[in-house]
Every structure is written in structure tokens, then in C-alpha cells.
């Protein structure tokens, strides 16, 4: 099978695959080992997790280093050009290699089958997420109510995360929209130990204070809670389910791997004052 066919088939099956291509080579006089054989522009290496690599960039050492970086690129989902020595040496710029990551769609798991869930699932689909809606109540968790979701699961959050949690990674998101401690505390406790990139929980400031107390009672320590974005979303004055969905997705974009520092992101969590600024809905200065 040709390299193209391998990449094509993996793309169609939504299997993770990375392709590394030599896009620039400096003149050999500038190489650390100028007697090495030449490197062909366009030379390729195809890397798939759990499969033998295919193709070559012209040196075993270079292939090894690039294959490692390609697996890293699949984790982050970011494609970029990297520089290496002709034999794969670090900190040299003899060969430029474009490492293109074709990662499967990121996943969003939404707990709670409520109106906000339908709006969030819609916006998440626009952003390319594979969306799962999970709720323990079979009356509410139906595909008919969430036709935009890729999967609707009737289960307890902690049980569902026990199944899918190990597969969650830095590009994925878990959003807890139940604002019922019976569901959201177990969901957050189960999500914290996973590698999920974004973990948010909805609720008023009062709900959130109560939830934080329950999480601590459940044995979650202060440092672990640093990851939890609650109240969920950016402080844009969102009110309707649709606006709230935009606020949540904007926060996910703002916090995702490699874009900006957390202190620059106007998250509701890191601000005081009312969540809804028009004075309706949330009483008091909590």
C-alpha cells in the first residue's frame, strides 16, 4: 500500500495518522556531517499509533526522532514545521520537516440532558467535536431530544467516565451541566483524574460554592480543583442556552493547548459579581 493510500484510508476511518514531509534542506556544507547522502525534498514518513511506521526521511535516527514528535503532534492536534539535524540531531536546522497531524475529532462529553445541553451540543458540532450526551434519567436522555449529538447515553456520570475516561486527552472536553450535586459531584470526581483538556461545570455562584464544598468533602484537594472551570464559561453576559453555549465554547477555545495564558482569559470562574448582568435571574451579590 502506498503512503497516500495509508493516509487516505486512515482519514476515512477517522483513525489517527501523522505524515512527516521534508520541505526544506540547507546546503550540505552547513551540515554537521557533510558527507552524509542527500535528502530528497518531499521524502515522507507516515506514523500511526500502534502500527509500524511507513516510509523514511533518509536516516534511521531522523525517522526515530520525527516519529516521536509526530505522535506528540497527534496528541495536541497541531501541525507544524520542525527543524532537525540530517541525522535527527536536536538543536540543528539542517532539515525542515512538516509534521502534519490528522487527529480524529476531539470529543465533548456533556453530562445532564437539559436545554443548555442541546445548545452546547449544537455549537460543539460546529467546532468539530464528537458529542456525547450522558444522563442517568432515561426519560430525558433520548436521541429524539438531542438529534445533534453523536451519541446519547443513559448512565451515571461516574460509570460512563469509568468507561470512556481513559480515552480522553488534552483536546477533549467534559462539561457538567446537571447542576444537581447528586450527578455533578460524582461526574467531576471521576473526570478530574482523566487527561481531559477542559473540565467545566455550570451553576450559579451559590450552586458552585456549595459544589466546591461537597467536592472537598468527597476528598478532592484544592490543587486538583485548579482544573475545574466553574462557573463554566467566559464572562460575556450570556443568558439564553445558546448564548451560554457560545460562552462555554469560547472558554474552551481560549484555554486550549498552546493559546494564551489562563490569566488573560476572562473566565467567570476568575471574576466576582453576578453571572447575569442585566439584574434578572440571580439574586444578590453572590
Amino acid at each position: 500500500m502506498s503512503l497516500y493510500e495509508t493516509v487516505r484510508d486512515a482519514l476515512r476511518a477517522e483513525d489517527p495518522v501523522a505524515m512527516a514531509t521534508v520541505v526544506e534542506v540547507v546546503p550540505r556544507e552547513e551540515w554537521e556531517f557533510p558527507d552524509d547522502p542527500g535528502v530528497a525534498l518531499g521524502a515522507k514518513l507516515v506514523v500511526r499509533p500502534g502500527h509500524p511506521r511507513q516510509g523514511s526521511l533518509g536516516h534511521e535516527g531522523l525517522d526515530t526522532v520525527v516519529a516521536r514528535d509526530a505522535l506528540g503532534a497527534l496528541e495536541s492536534g497541531l501541525s507544524d514545521t520542525r527543524h532537525y539535524g540530517r541525522r535527527g540531531q536536536a538543536r540543528r536546522r539542517e532539515v525542515s520537516v512538516f509534521v502534519e497531524a490528522f487527529a480524529p475529532p476531539p470529543q465533548m462529553v456533556i453530562f445532564g440532558a437539559v436545554d443548555f445541553t442541546a445548545a452546547l451540543a449544537k455549537v460543539a458540532k460546529i467546532l468539530g467535536y464528537r458529542v456525547t450526551v450522558c444522563d442517568a434519567r432515561p426519560v430525558f436522555a433520548t436521541p429524539a431530544r438531542f438529534p445533534m449529538a453523536d451519541e446519547v447515553v443513559v448512565d451515571w456520570p461516574d460509570r460512563h467516565l469509568a468507561k470512556v475516561g481513559p480515552d480522553l486527552g488534552p483536546r477533549d472536553a467534559v462539561c457538567v451541566l446537571t447542576h444537581d450535586p447528586k450527578f455533578d459531584v460524582p461526574a467531576i470526581v471521576a473526570a478530574l483524574p482523566t487527561r481531559v483538556g477542559y473540565l467545566g461545570a455550570m451553576g450559579s455562584r451559590r450552586t458552585n460554592a456549595d459544589r466546591l464544598a461537597r467536592l472537598k468533602e468527597a476528598g478532592v484537594d484544592e490543587a486538583a480543583l485548579e482544573r475545574l472551570m466553574a462557573p463554566v464559561g467566559l464572562d460575556i453576559g450570556a443568558r439564553t442556552p445558546e448564548e451560554t453555549a457560545i460562552s462555554i465554547c469560547a472558554e474552551i477555545i481560549a484555554l486550549r493547548v498552546g493559546s494564551g495564558s489562563r490569566s488573560e482569559v476572562p473566565s467567570l470562574r476568575d471574576r466576582g459579581g453576578p453571572i447575569h448582568r442585566d439584574g434578572r435571574g440571580e439574586p444578590g451579590p453572590d
Binding site: T21, V23, S79, D80, T81, F98, E100, A101
Partner: peptide, 15 residues
């Protein structure tokens, strides 16, 4: 033809 690098403001990302 693939975008393999962007400097400054660019309309499309690498890839």
C-alpha cells in the same frame, strides 16, 4: 499544495 508555515497574520493554519 499544503501550508507548512505561517508568520504573522495568516488566514489558514498549517495543514
Amino acid at each position: 499544495a499544503r501550508v507548512v508555515g505561517v508568520e504573522g497574520s495568516g488566514p489558514r493554519d498549517p495543514g
